[in-house]
């Protein structure tokens, strides 16, 4: 291997790592707030790319139907509960949350995105669609069992992933897509040629992580989320609703998932079921940080990206295996550094 190849591999690794950072950050966020290991995050990433590709092809993306169908279920669940409690304010709120907003976004996607619309507008609508799906998932699957153990929540997350996989195949079909991204002549940086795509991905990732940082440390909503993450009961007592915190965390997860999908779409061909492996790699990165420490999780994500890109050069067929088996030494290291008390299943 020459230095040139190594440099190219490293670039690739860093670009992938930048996406895993986003996934890892969101996984950590959702886990700390709701204790859900949000496996379907990867599916959202894949759905984003598939949605954008559908817009490019001039068809109505299947995401619209997923959103409408999911929102209908969420709305009926919410209304049943609100009516049973005679809570009129909640009725109105849930009609807006799960009725008006999803329908508006769906109409937008159906009516106002012609085939030749500018790429940025398509991307924006794609983001809106995918972001709306995420809180719907939270409402249907996780909110009713919010107080269950992480293990039960994990099983539910895996079940959700299975369901999304099945829907994905139905509405998007089995073909893979590759979307448009940053294009143009490569940039020169410190004597290295760097493609615009790589530069764009890294820059977007850094900006997004910075925005998330500002959100959590400067805004009231973000701080409330952190409070809920730190102590659920305590947060409820001072008036922070755990359900609202969970919903916010999932909205952020959806948004970041959508952006990750836009970034990763041009770099690799995505299928309806590609998301799972992507999400899992982000997860391996997140575990480096013990599912809690943001900068470490980011470093872990870059490590995963780099290992993956070098592994694909040396032993392409075993690329994923090498990445996933990385988790064993990482877990070993973590268990030595920071052994946790075990929590029972109930």
């Amino acid at each position: 291997m020459t230095a040139d190849i190594a440099a190219i591999l490293l670039q690739d690794g860093i670009a992938n790592g930048a996406i895993y950072i986003l996934l890892a950050t969101v996984l950590v966020l959702v886990f700390t707030v709701t204790r859900v290991i949000f496996v379907p995050q990867g599916d959202l990433v894949a759905f984003t790319a598939l949605t954008l590709a559908a817009f490019d092809a001039g068809t109505i993306p299947g995401t619209v139907w997923i959103l409408l169908f999911g929102a209908a279920i969420a709305l009926s669940l919410e209304m049943l509960e609100a009516v049973a409690r005679r809570d009129r304010a909640r009725c109105v709120r849930s009609i807006i949350q799960f009725g008006v907003v999803p329908v508006a976004v769906a109409l937008l996607a159906v009516l106002l995105v012609p085939k030749d619309a500018p790429l940025l507008w398509k991307m924006a609508v794609t983001c809106a669609l995918v972001t709306c799906i995420s809180p719907v998932i939270y409402r249907i699957v996780f909110q009713p069992i919010a107080s269950a153990s992480p293990l039960v929540l994990l099983i539910a997350a895996i079940a959700t992933h299975l369901g999304m996989n099945s829907i994905g195949l139905q509405v998007f079909g089995a073909e893979g897509v590759r979307t448009q991204g940053f294009s143009g002549p490569p940039l020169s940086f410190a004597g290295q040629l760097i493609s615009q795509q790589v530069a764009g991905v890294v820059a977007s990732s850094i900006v997004l992580v910075f925005v998330l940082y500002l959100f959590f440390h400067r805004s009231l909503r973000g701080r409330a989320l952190l409070a809920a993450a730190y102590n659920r009961r305590g947060a409820e007592i001072v008036g922070i609703s755990a359900a609202a915190a969970g919903r916010t965390a999932f909205i952020v997860a959806g948004l970041v998932g959508a952006v990750s999908g836009l970034l990763v779409g041009p770099m690799t061909t995505l299928y309806y079921d590609s998301g799972f492996i992507l999400g899992l790699k982000g997860f391996v990165g997140a575990i480096v940080g013990g599912l809690a420490i943001y900068p470490l999780a980011a470093a872990g994500a870059v490590l995963v990206g780099a290992v993956e890109s070098f592994a694909s050069f040396w032993a392409s067929a075993y690329r994923d295996i090498i990445v996933f088996m990385l988790i064993i030494p990482i877990l070993f290291w973590r268990s030595v550094v920071n052994p946790h008390a075990e929590d029972g299943i109930e």
Partner: peptide, 23 residues
Amino acid sequence: VTVRMSGHYLALATLCFGISFYF
């Protein structure tokens, strides 16, 4: 490697093992 830590680590380690075995 994992029993010393919280339950979901074991779940995820087995998940990774399962996928790796398959591939």
